[in-house]
Amino acid sequence: MSKDMKELPGTPVSGKELKSDKIITFEWRPNAKYAWSAGIAYGRYLDELKEGRIIGRRCSRCKRIIVPPRMFCEQCFVATDEWVYCKDTGTVNTFSLSYLDADANRIKEPILVAVIDIDGASPGVGILHLLGNVDPKKIDVGMKVKAVWKPPEEREGAVTDILYWEPMED
């Protein structure tokens, strides 16, 4: 069958045509709004971020300290049972330089993105966040970094209460 295929069904159109009067189209913008509850674990996590602290949860079964915290350990499938403060320092696990914004528009100055393994959490336990105050060429996996917090009066209990993570001085 495939080897005999010559013309397949489908009528290509360009983006320009799609926005022109040449073909019949219908436009729509959904306008539902949402309020997502942080829940118990993330709620406390955000409360602590507002205070300039990073908190995790400990699972007494596998002994992992996990960040972001959750009320149950997804591996042991038991309730976690202890809040544990972690440090606001960590290690770059992997990083990237984004020349795209969230709508895939090109941007000139890259957003510095990283997974940061948090000191005081179990090895390999990290969070997605941003790097800053660093020459992109000097970023490397394994680099030690420290959180740069918003001034306390500007914090709102969100992951953006940490502005970014910057290299630690040796």
Binding site: Y34, W36, S96, A102, L128, V159
Partner: peptide, 22 residues
Amino acid sequence: DPIISRPLNPNLVWIFALEMHR
């Protein structure tokens, strides 16, 4: 996740780039 990731305004390509780099 609307609480722990979305406020950072991520693009999906980020996760691929981070995984690829690792």
